[in-house]
Nucleic acid binder design. Structure first.
Lengths: 218, 218
DNA sequence: GATGTCGTTCTTGTATACAAAAACGTTGAC
DNA sequence: GTCAACGTTTTTGTATACAAGAACGACATC
């Protein structure tokens, strides 16, 4: 029997929350989940703590934990912050990036392009993720990298959703290229602006998507 | 007896780690702390989880938790990120800030100035904190505000240390004024640059301070 | 009939008991 | 004398038992 089952449960629950298994505001029942995972309440509670710190659930003392899906406004805000942070990465990377890393980024973009033409959204998604992760790494700031990864991970399901939009894949690719070009030129401002626009537009697109899905809600 | 003792313990432990009660790399003993806080191991373990997620301790499976003080490099990195995030706040605030809020910020600065002249570092510290918190708020982005508060809180003890440096208080004040002026002008770039320099310099000062304290270490 | 209060039940928070893995020391062989 | 293997001890991870607060409902009172 493996140790640290709480960790596995936390990841599983996180996935379930993010993919919409639990609705917003739903209460996560300790005993129910304990039975479902075939463990005692203890690992479940440990998992809850992690989720609460990630902001996926809210822990109300003596009341329980409730899933807390970000609303449209908060999502926009999160994408705005993501854009800002990636812009910081770009600024730093523009100064420090090596030719080796630049070549690698162009490589990733090329594979991304292939995925677009092949219509393979999953592959596109993976390569797209690689691109951003490389940018974080190339900032040369380990702490910044970790913070970016955290937020990037949190936004994952929403990015995924909006990638289905028509024509967005090709445009997104072009934006990636623009970023790499700016990095190659060592142009901090242009790199920052390019990546900021690239990320922020995702939040806006998502917003539009949401609005179109439930037009008369509230 | 109040509920949620784990939370109180977490905060207490956080304070103890930050003020240097525990050395870097020290192992936090569950049973020992349980005895010390007159509770069982359960709340201690819950507190550990929180600390681990904040990055103050490292949890190694089946080994225990170890305090993880950031080294000079990581500190510089963290201040760099803080600077970047506050710059984002400044950019957003420059567009959205109201005259009402601007007046309030000038007020805070005035009180700060008084504290400098009175040599009251504690008051200075509180007002200084208010200034930054107001900036976060004025970004108009609640998520960004929360993230900034998180990092700001984490850097608290290190800021406090470096505030003792001679002449820094007066200079810091002038920088605050420059930020408010830029905000008043609605000059995004200047506001961002001003606050970035203001924050980043703290990390550097701290670095110098550390270097001067242990000149021949390593 | 509505409302407030009391009691039951359910759920969370904490303590304790148990299991398993890792650290440590001891002992034995080379 | 050194090194390795085994057993003991300590410590973490999990389960279960217990305590206390909150939700819910019934009953009484106005």
């Amino acid at each position: 029997m493996e140790p640290r089952r709480a960790e596995i449960i936390a990841d599983t629950l996180e996935g379930m929350i993010l993919d919409g298994t639990f609705a917003d505001g739903a209460r996560l029942d300790e005993v129910q989940l304990a039975a479902r995972f075939k463990v005692s309440r203890t690992p479940i509670r440990e998992a809850f703590q992690r989720l609460a710190l990630s902001g996926l659930v809210e822990q109300i003392p003596r009341r329980g934990v409730f899933v807390r899906q970000p609303g449209p406004v908060e999502l926009i805000e999160m994408f705005e912050v993501m854009a800002g942070m990636e812009a910081i990465c770009a600024r730093l990377a523009a100064r420090r990036i090596s030719d080796r890393a630049l070549a690698e980024m162009r490589n990733v973009n090329a594979r991304c392009q292939q995925a677009v033409q092949a219509g393979d959204t999953d592959l596109y998604y993976r390569e797209n993720e690689s691109f951003h992760h490389m940018l974080y790494r190339q900032s040369g700031n380990g702490f910044l990298e970790q913070e970016c990864l955290r937020l990037h991970r949190r936004l994952k399901p929403f990015r995924r959703l909006q990638l289905r939009l028509r024509g967005r894949l090709g445009q997104s690719m072009a934006e990636h290229e623009a970023v790499v070009d700016a990095l190659a030129d060592g142009d901090e401002a242009r790199a920052a602006e390019a990546i900021h626009a690239h990320v922020a537009v995702q939040g806006e697109k998502f917003h539009h998507l949401m609005a179109s899905l439930k037009p008369a809600a509230e």
